[in-house]
Design a protein around this nucleic acid. Structure first.
Lengths: 210, 210
DNA sequence: ATCGTAAAATACCATTTAGTATGTTGTCAG
DNA sequence: CTGACAACATACTAAATGGTATTTTACGAT
């Protein structure tokens, strides 16, 4: 009974609320990433989809709600995936952070980098404009900082960080450096910039290391 | 002859191209600062003025041109005024930068801070969207970095900076820290954040000082 | 098989938007 | 004093925008 597999046919070509939601979120993420939230229209988003406006407003009451969902369902998992989870593999968290910086910034094509950081983009654009946005964005940012702080704490216990450094202060500064990093790359074309900023971050890391 | 003073009357209540331009720029700066460039309309801007659309489009061919003028005629002078010119008074540029950070960030009302840095806001929002914007913004950012670098060089000559620190690298990092600073304050409500970031910046400054 | 409902499509609307066309008025040279 | 032109005002438009009203269709339960 209840054979979950569809008989034949091209498998998953039916109606599916979750799939449609994901399809809209994926398309929206790209467009918002490229043009900003206020710079993209609902029509443009659904045009990148094989769905229509009816499906959009069946999922999201307003355009703002799409924005909130972007932060919670796309951007937050992306941050954890790129910046937090990989740190598990490093005994020294500072080393792990540097490696991830190298992977996520140093080794990414410049065209992608020019679009900035999805989270930071929205913070800069939407935090002062809409309170709902600000709250979701703040939650994501705090999560990021909290996780970094947690890893720094264990790194400190393991003796990698100086005794007189506050993990919270360092976590704040590190996330700040991430955002600043993206911001600078976005604004400048200087090809030596990434290396230059890297050098300075390493200097800071050394100054808080044992 | 040619009595430049108007006879009586409320003095400067006549037509004046420059004054009108400045009036539009001032109003536009505030609105764009609050809502982003794409988040504000020409109609809203002129509503904050005692001029009309005719005056606006007499000054600026398009809305984009207003944006360009904002960068060149309002934001760039503001940066020089806030972050560069005051450094003349300090033999040690690092000390001057810290003092200006304190003045321009530490002592400003939080409501104002929440709006971010006018330059960084536009970089994040408009650099990937419009090439004209990107060019103007890049010019402004480069000017900022160049001036900081110049002051660091003289500071190095005077013996305040370590011999092995590159003024260019440090200048890049310092401007990056400014932008990151604003970005974090914009995204978070943590009242201890400013002090926390300050501490870290001081640590970095010490690590490149003699 | 069919029926109710959720998922999605289609057509439509009021408002807002950047920009234009044209009219009006202040100012200044002669 | 008087044109002439620059500095502005007013009225308008075509397109885009977020959102809605209504209809169609797939799917699971019975």
């Amino acid at each position: 009974m209840t054979t979950k597999n569809p008989p034949t046919k091209s498998a998953t070509r039916t109606r599916n609320l979750q799939r449609s939601r994901q399809e809209i979120l994926d398309a929206a993420f790209i467009e918002v990433f490229k043009n900003g939230f206020q710079g993209v229209s609902v029509d443009e988003i659904i045009k990148k989809t094989d769905l229509t406006k009816g499906a959009f407003y069946h999922q999201f009451p307003t355009k703002m709600d799409l924005g909130y969902a972007l932060v919670e369902e796309v951007i937050t998992p992306m941050i954890l995936d790129r910046w937090i989870l990989p740190l598990e593999n490093f005994k020294n968290p500072l080393e792990g952070i540097l490696v991830q910086l190298q992977k996520n910034i140093g080794e990414v094509e410049i065209d992608q980098l020019k679009l900035g950081c999805p989270l930071n983009n929205l913070v800069q654009e939407m935090a002062p404009v809409d309170k709902g946005f600000k709250k979701k964005l703040e939650t994501a940012l705090e999560l990021w900082i909290d996780k970094i702080e947690w890893h720094l704490k264990r790194g400190k216990k393991a003796g990698y960080l100086s005794d007189d450094v506050s993990p919270r202060d360092a976590a704040n500064f590190i996330v700040m450096a991430h955002e600043g990093f993206y911001g600078m790359v976005k604004g400048l074309s200087d090809p030596s910039l990434v290396k230059s900023l890297f050098k300075s971050i390493k200097i800071y890391f050394k100054s808080i290391s044992n």
